[in-house]
Write a protein that binds this DNA or RNA. Structure first.
Lengths: 137, 137
DNA sequence: CTTGAACCTCTAGTCGCTAGAGCATTTAGG
DNA sequence: CCTAAATGCTCTAGCGACTAGAGGTTCAAG
């Protein structure tokens, strides 16, 4: 049986975050000690590691909740798990595409200024005037 | 003099967002009509467009606040503006780098599964077991 | 048995809005 | 001039995923 601190250390998830996950129903409320402190069975470590890893990959808690439910019934077909992961991959790609546009625009804006004062600064002007932009955003 | 709705239409910033910006001190409280409605001078359009554009580029409101303050004193040197934009560019690049790692990992995970059921599903297993990953994240 | 670290609950704050309730005002048509 | 619709007002709460802090209790080592 692990204390919440030991579980935190074992999984890399912070103590308040574990309590938050419990409150959100992602992990079951564990048994308590006589003094009302949480005591986790070793299996809790795996579930929490799963959550942590999925979070590291950027999955929202709602998607993780679905994946956890799926993983509890191993005989279910796993197309749903693929759908969730695939949808997330799509979102990640969309975010990358958008950020690359921003990167290009910021690069252009910041490199085009050789002024000394704010009055002539290209950065300030480019922000004030959208028509100076290369692409839509 | 523009109503808040007209200002919203002219800048593409939604009405509640304009009020929010006022509350946050990014735009000055405008004069009011007899019936207590906001009435904006044409100059407000430019300031709001500036904010909108900077937001589109992903700058946080705090950075925008600084840039707005800078732009009010045109004789100031503009190195600060460059610093702000440059820092943001750095953050954008960092986010891109991180997302690309996630993309690669998700790609690997989702393409490596040819199972039918959750019990054998590579997606589920890869999430449960970090050691199956290629890189750190 | 004492002490200090770890634990408990609860509330509020982060960011940048967005939604909704319950009213008041403005504006265009008749 | 009157009415109805559109627009405006303030205030509060909610989103996601935590994080911080207050104020108190329990545990484990020495």
């Amino acid at each position: 049986m692990l204390s919440i601190g030991a579980l935190a250390k074992a999984t890399g998830v912070k103590v308040p975050t574990i309590r938050y996950y419990e409150q959100q129903g992602l992990i079951a409320p564990p048994v308590r000690s006589e003094g009302n402190q949480r005591r986790y069975e070793p299996a809790a470590r795996e579930r929490l590691s799963f959550i942590r890893h999925a979070r590291d990959l950027g999955l929202p808690l709602e998607a993780i909740r679905e994946l956890l439910e799926l993983s509890e019934t191993p005989e279910m077909p796993c197309v749903d798990a693929h759908r969730i992961a695939g949808a997330h991959l799509g979102e990640v790609r969309a975010r990358i595409a958008r950020l690359r546009k921003l990167e290009a625009e910021l690069e252009r804006i910041t490199s085009a200024c050789d002024a000394d004062t704010v009055g002539d600064c290209h950065v300030i002007h480019a922000l004030a005037d959208h028509s100076l932009c290369d692409s839509e955003h």
